[in-house]
């Protein structure tokens, strides 16, 4: 564990708490892409299949359980209690391409052809693009609530900091995995436009609006 990964994990934790807060406080999931939330649930379930086979630490297990449980809770609540508060007509990104593309990528690029390793790799590739339905929806509507922008910033910063963590780990431990590094870079690049608007507008107290 190093400071980059710790802060990254805490940002990830914060992002989910901010999202839960937004839904509870506004009693609405408006502006949130259900498809992105569904993809994150798939990401965490497929990545943490080793939850029962491989013990790392209490921290590691608790975070895995939280990420699976919270993403499942959000997907469930968006379908149930908050079903009427968001508009599926705005959430039109074709996630079949993301699900299929991540499957192809994990079949071509992986380190071992085993059940756990393939699903882990699948989750890494899928996470890189899971935010696309959300960004696509925001590009259609041209705006986002401030609390939603904070949620997305924390979520994007988490993976960006993981990239820094991997560079740091390579320098200090010789630990290197190129698949998550590449996927983390792709994800961070996808966030570039969002980060630009976030820093230039939301951080200065203005509303998140696309030019």
């Amino acid at each position: 564990m190093n400071v980059f990964r710790l802060v990254a994990d805490l940002m990830h934790l914060a992002s989910i708490l901010i999202l839960l807060l937004k839904i509870r406080k506004t009693r609405s999931a408006a502006g949130i892409s259900f498809k992105s939330q569904l993809l994150y649930l798939i990401v965490f379930v497929t990545r943490y299949l080793d939850l029962f086979t491989h013990w790392v630490s209490l921290y590691n297990t608790a975070m895995k359980v939280f990420f699976i449980a919270s993403s499942g809770y959000i997907v469930y609540q968006m379908q149930r209690r908050y079903r009427a508060t968001w508009d599926p007509a705005l959430d039109t990104f074709r996630i079949e391409f993301l699900l299929g593309g991540a499957a192809v990528m994990s079949l071509i690029f992986h380190t071992k052809f085993t059940f756990l390793e393939l699903f882990w790799t699948y989750s890494i590739w899928l996470e890189a693009v899971a935010i696309l339905p959300q960004l696509f929806q925001m590009s259609r509507t041209g705006e986002a609530e401030t609390i939603t922008a904070h949620y997305l910033f924390a979520l994007g910063a988490y993976r960006g900091l993981y990239v820094v963590n991997w560079i740091y780990r390579y320098a200090t431990e010789g630990y290197w995995e190129w698949i998550p590094f590449l996927a983390g870079m792709v994800q961070t690049v996808l966030y570039a436009d969002f980060f630009y608007v976030y820093f230039s507008r939301v951080m200065r107290g203005k509303k998140f609006e696309l030019p």
Binding site: R5, K112, L116, W120
Partner: peptide, 10 residues
């Protein structure tokens, strides 16, 4: 520890 079984990250 580069493959499943040795992963310590989230």
């Amino acid at each position: 520890a580069a493959v499943a079984g040795g992963k310590d990250e989230l």
